Simulated scan of single mutants.
Amino acid sequence: MSSSSTLRELQRDLENKANDLSKLQKDVAKNHQLRKKCTIQLGENELVLKELELLKEDANVYKLIGPILVKQDLAEARANVRKRIEYISAELKRLDAILQDLEDEQRSKQETVLKLQQRVQSLQAGKGKAQ
């Protein structure tokens, strides 16, 4: 196989790997956004729980359902908010695991792309010297 066909093949491979890396980077960015959204929701819910904990047992609590405020039992409201916090925390752990895997894969692909770029450059440099 000639060096020019090897070079073309390497360049094609490099282009494919670079496209894969680009898609992966978009996935990482999307997951960071999801994680940020969940973190904000968790903070809001923790704040609501703190406020509910300050209330006396006979306090009136209302829940917004669509355009209507519906009276809710304080204990039920606290339980609902705790459940929501549990759910969001579990979702954050899941997202963290996915993000870690994606970032590891991204690092691996970056190294592969870098090595391919170096091979292409060295082939091009060798070809340039031969001419």
Rank of each mutant, 00 (worst) to 15 (best):
Q131I: 10
L55T: 11
S2W: 00
S5L: 08
S4P: 02
R8M: 08
Q25A: 04
R84I: 13
N19P: 03
V61H: 00
M1H: 02
V61S: 03
E57C: 01
T112V: 12
K63P: 04
E76T: 14
Y62N: 11
L42C: 07
K26L: 12
L74P: 07
K23G: 08
D73Q: 07
N80A: 04
E103V: 12
L42Y: 07
Q33A: 11
S108T: 15
Q110G: 03
K93D: 14
A75H: 13
Q117I: 01
L49G: 08
V48I: 15
D13T: 13
N16Y: 04
I65V: 15
K129Q: 12
L49Q: 03
L95I: 11
A97G: 09
K63C: 10
K37R: 07
N16A: 04
L123T: 15
K30Q: 07
Q118S: 11
T6K: 11
M1G: 05
Q11W: 03
Q124F: 08
A79I: 05
A29Q: 12
H32W: 06
Q121K: 04
K26I: 14
L55P: 00
C38T: 10
L114N: 10
I68F: 12
V70Y: 07
L10V: 08
K71M: 05
L7T: 11
I40A: 02
D73T: 06
E44M: 12
E57L: 11
L123P: 00
E9T: 14
I98D: 06
D27A: 07
L116D: 06
D104Y: 05
I40F: 00
Q106R: 08
S5T: 15
I40M: 03
K109F: 03
A130P: 03
L95W: 09
K115Q: 12
E103T: 14
S4G: 01
A59W: 09
